[in-house]
Design a binder for these strands. Sequence first.
RNA 1: GGAGAGGUACCAAAGCGGCCAAAUGGGGCGGACUGUAAAUCCGCUGGUUUUACCUUCGGAGGUUCGAAUCCUCCCCUCUCCA
Length: 409
Amino acid sequence: MEQEVGEQVDEQLERMAAGSIDFVGLQELRPRLTEALNAGRPLRVKLGMDPSAADLHVGHSVTLEKLRVFQELGHTPIFLVGDFTARIGDPTGKNKARPPLEPEQIRANAQTYVDQVGKVLDADRAEIRFNSEWMDAMSPTDFVRLCSRYTVARMLERDDFAKRYREGTAISVHEFLYPLVQAYDSVALQADVELGGTDQLFNLLVGREIQRDYGQPPQAVITLPLLVGTDGKEKMSKSVGNTIGLTEPPQEIYGKTMSISDSLMADWIPVLSFGRWDDLEASVSGGAEDPLSVKQELARRLVDRFHGEGASSGAEAHFRQVIQQGRAPDEVPEVEIPLGSDGDAGLLDVMRQALGLASNGEARRLVSGGAVRLDEQRIDDPKVRLPAGEYLLQAGKRRYARVRLTSEP
RNA sequence: GGAGAGGUACCAAAGCGGCCAAAUGGGGCGGACUGUAAAUCCGCUGGUUUUACCUUCGGAGGUUCGAAUCCUCCCCUCUCCA
């Protein structure tokens, strides 16, 4: 029996560590895990996210997948929605303070997070918590006491703060509070382990110290690689606009994946694999394989991962038709536009309405750029007027609308 | 509280009385090329009824025929001193 638990511990630790960048407190975790297994008590594993945007994306899925591994190992996954911390704004990796969010926005985002987490995790068996639960209840006195546990000098050790301080960009005092609140969350949740992206290392480590101060054994910290966004440059993030959202339609996930560079694909595969895509990892590291078909396979698997097995076939067909062959998709949004007394309408107006463009100027630019087709014929003259009838309007490769111009009786 | 330096379009950054709807770079959007891409090249990137007009250079006033540019007050950021 003793022997068996020992083996189990090794096996579990190995799965916990797989694909991670840092694993702080591994040695302390070993006896703790052994004890937990013997007592039949699951570890409490925390993963926090701020509801700063409405959508979780593939980048978030990296840590979520790891949390799922813990769930599979029988531990308690705690998904912490940082509705309080969102009001502070995580300064990590930022060169300026984040604008704080409106409470309603935070609440709305938090709700969608909970829904989206179910795409990766068995949400029914996960503990889902909000840090406003204890933070709103904390008295100012207790809050100041929390702040007294850490020093400014140590705060300034953090790379992004140090950099901003050096460069003379503003650091507001409240930004220092963020790591402390995140750390206190671990106290409140009595976390045994906390997960995060590598950029979270500092915050996660503060958690260890604060837990010690509050008389708790410090959590183990596991960091995972950050996923570079579709632009191939910056970390995937909503504000940069280089994300693939977990809830995006299959053809979007597929298309965006296909649009990444071949070299980025090589970065993505090991990060997203979780030991499940040995074949893809092999073909990438081998390097010999045709990148197009590898990327298509990656796109298929991502679609299937978030939309369920088989969801990718439609997305792939759509991609082949619209992007590779440049033909109209099967489903084109239909727009009906009533004509005024003139009996016809200007092309630019029609484009703006049918394609949702910001202005006629934008429509004009598309026309002069040679991007616009009407019933498959390229249009060069922005002054064209269209009489009543039905048209297939196209701007660029991907924007289509079937427009019906109707004359009003 | 004192002294100084700044706030320019999505971002960075030039401009410092008219030639400024504002250089340049990045980003974005198109086009060409391609195996999807990337890279590269080309075009566009405030609005409108587009040879012109309207709104824009932190905010509000003022000087001037004319202001992003000069003056006054205010707000914000940074540095040094206290």
